[in-house]
Write a protein that binds this DNA or RNA. Structure first.
Lengths: 242, 242
DNA sequence: CTGTATGTGAACGATATCGTACGTAAAATA
DNA sequence: TATTTTACGTACGATATCGTTCACATACAG
């Protein structure tokens, strides 16, 4: 595996890990591992794909840009998924703007190599289709969630998803950042986080959040978290058959 | 084409119309045209698919059922799409509860016939994938829309989508129905509709809404309407190549 | 060490939507 | 025709979130 950095990096992306060994070997031989830094814009909306991006950890938010300048998250992607789903549906252009919110490493695979992999290893398309399904579940739940659920529930849900996608209980995410992805005021996020701190679910110190009690956070979240988590678990639980 | 009803029914479903003639002929020979009546639940969430359903007109909402008994629309489907997208992603179970909101006719095609069509006519899968992409755009826009936009904008958007999916300016949809699919109070919908009536966009009489001026409705809607409309237009504009 | 930028807490009134309830008129039913 | 049901308009106070601003403490840069 080529990498921009010194040392070896095991692929912890669940899409890649779910493939058959020969497909994994092929893709790892072509992959370049790069660091994703906070705030990095991976694609502009409508841009042509050059690479599919498979995060090892961290959180990438697919952002919507509104005409009035506001932006808000459409969906989020971690090591359970990859950036480039609309390429799989056919058509080379992005339909969102993926922005790194929690940094980490990712395997970048060129479209040319991806096409070759899809051609030679049927498990690649199958696995991506399973992810397409779980992403659809995420999107559907999010539509409902944004209609019905309150700020504190949505903040809890976001933090739980993020926690699932990092290896540590502490990670970088400002309240300002959460407010941007959830389309609410920082003051609203601040108030929700204080309630969650008082409940003992988390600690907050200048851009670093520490999850201290997941079960409390789950109790304060809405049912949408568990449904989405389950969809991701199902989509990466079984190895592809061919 | 077999039908439960007397007379012939041209297929006005855009997915079917975008296929190659031989694929259209095959599917029409297997399709059964049935009436979809208001309130009809086509599948329960998690049920096994028996048929893919291709609406000719009317609106089907993919509903989310929450634990507290509330329900809300995740996405809506008309003659630009079909019910059964998650079958295409692999796995035979539904991931939502499709409920008929505006009645119409639809072509029902059994899973067995659909499998045969996918096997024999590559354009079937390709066309469905294009729809998968535009449904993903719809879902993504809806996530953002539900985060950011106001009741009147969302009501306007829903009515515009519905108008696109029926052949007439007048169709059946109670304010109570709109409030259920948008997850807001009937009183909120009522107030929005009155504002839209006063603006000259529509008329409302006991369960029948008449769109009197689309351009006013478009002005009162949010940008999400046009983005979704455009995605649907793109996905059914070009004939499949094989 | 000092000044500046950043991240958070807290406050204000304003607004949107909520839950609920009641009245009215049209439609359906008896 | 008389009664009931349905669809809608409207009203009330309650609540959630909004937009904005200020204060303060930490981190960082010169």
């Amino acid at each position: 595996m080529k990498t921009e950095l010194i040392g070896d990096f095991d692929t912890r992306n669940k899409i890649l890990l779910a493939l058959r060994p020969d497909a994994i070997a092929f893709l790892e031989s072509r992959a370049v591992v790069k660091r994703l830094s906070q705030g990095q814009v991976l694609y502009k909306d409508g841009e042509f794909f050059t690479h599919a991006i498979f995060p090892h950890e961290g959180v990438i938010c697919l952002m919507a840009q509104m005409q009035d300048g506001r932006s808000v998250e459409k969906a989020s992607v971690g090591n359970e998924g990859f950036i480039g789903i609309s390429y799989i549906f056919g058509g080379g252009k992005t339909i969102s703007e993926p922005v790194v919110q929690v940094p980490g490493y990712a395997s970048w695979i060129s479209i040319k190599d991806l096409d070759e992999a899809i051609q030679n290893y049927p498990c690649v398309r199958d696995t991506m289709m399973r992810y397409a399904k779980s992403l659809t579940v995420q999107l559907m739940e999010s539509v409902a969630c944004n209609s019905l659920h309150k700020a504190e529930q949505r903040v809890s849900r976001w933090l739980l998803h993020a926690h699932d996608r990092v290896n540590t209980d502490t990670f970088q995410m400002t309240q300002e950042g959460i407010s941007k992805v959830l389309g609410m005021r920082r003051a609203t996020v601040s108030s929700a986080c204080n309630a969650l701190m008082n409940a003992g679910a988390l600690k907050y110190t200048r851009g670093n959040v520490t999850i201290t009690d997941r079960s409390i956070l789950e109790g304060r979240s809405c049912e949408c978290y568990e449904r989405i988590r389950l969809a991701f678990a199902n989509s990466s639980s079984h190895k592809a058959r061919d």
